[in-house]
Design a protein around this nucleic acid. Structure first.
Length: 269
DNA sequence: TTCCAGGCGTATC
DNA sequence: GATACGCATGGA
């Protein structure tokens, strides 16, 4: 990895990475753009301020240990996205999506946070999802652990204004804190077993389960089918995904989702 | 005002 | 198994 440490900051030079495309493409909801080239955010409780100048990234106030041990993993820097995009270029639609926003990377997020966040995300829009999560974090002084949430009921969550999702959060909290749901067991389970177990939580269906497994457990073969991806599939892949996505359908999904939502799909409607 | 948002539970066939 | 409908809230 091409980086060095200077005055407490880490400077990294890398291709296939863009902060706007990666941090504001709907996979994470807590990165805040604080200036034209800088974002402030968290991996669960761990804060980071990161800036971009073309292909050079500054990890502010970050030790080499944290960079290599935490952030390189979070931003999936050990994966070769040039190689992935070469594979995807076999398919015309994916080639366009990668050309449109080739700086998307699949973040390796905290599993508990993605579970709660994507329960909140259902039948909801991204600005409001961010608002609800922001109120949750404000209340608990950071994203709450399930330990902190133990015993919390739907009515305790009125301050979130999460609507009908509050009762789903209550069921999720209760099943995780009483051990019925074990996130680490799910992480190491097969995709199918993991989906089945997650879907025993009220408010977790196939789409939310796949988001948790893709964003929170880095199961790259999970393929969340949301309204945008359903449109892509109906219009461009009536016979299913192309073979070049085998095993990394979830990463392809990120490029397609972003392209449909902010690129072609959006212009047309 | 009406429609819609990174869906899901429930009822019904 | 498939399809229809309601659901809290708030931005467009």
């Amino acid at each position: 990895m091409d980086f060095y440490s200077k005055n407490g900051d880490i400077f990294l030079k890398t291709a296939d990475f863009d902060l706007d495309e990666t941090l504001d493409c709907g996979q994470a909801f807590r990165w805040e753009k604080i200036s034209a080239d800088t974002y402030s955010g968290f991996l669960f409780r761990k804060p980071l301020i990161i800036s971009q100048d073309k292909d050079v990234f500054t990890f502010h106030d970050t030790s080499e240990e944290d960079f290599l041990g935490i952030w390189a993993d979070y931003f999936d820097l050990y994966t070769d996205y040039s190689e992935l995009k070469r594979r995807f270029s076999d398919d015309e639609m994916l080639a366009k999506a990668c050309a449109y926003a080739g700086g998307i990377r699949l973040l390796r997020q905290d599993m508990g946070e993605t579970l709660i966040s994507f329960i909140i995300s259902q039948n909801n829009n991204i600005p409001r999802i961010k608002g609800i999560i922001s109120r949750l974090c404000e209340k608990y002084g950071g994203f709450p652990s399930f330990e902190q949430l133990e015993g919390v009921t739907a009515s305790d969550l009125d301050f979130l204004r999460a609507g009908f999702r509050a009762k789903y959060l209550e069921d999720c909290i209760s099943k995780v804190t009483n051990g019925e749901i074990d996130l680490e067991r799910i992480r190491s389970a097969s995709l199918n077993d993991a989906r089945k177990e997650l879907m025993t939580i009220k408010g977790v269906g196939p789409k939310v389960a796949d988001c948790v497994l893709l964003f929170g457990a880095h199961k790259t073969d999970a393929f969340p089918m949301d309204v945008w991806i359903k449109r892509v599939m109906a219009e461009f892949y009536p016979n299913g995904l192309p073979a070049c996505t085998e095993g990394v359908q979830g990463i392809a999904q990120q490029y397609l989702f972003h392209y449909m939502r902010t690129g072609v799909g959006n212009e047309r409607s």
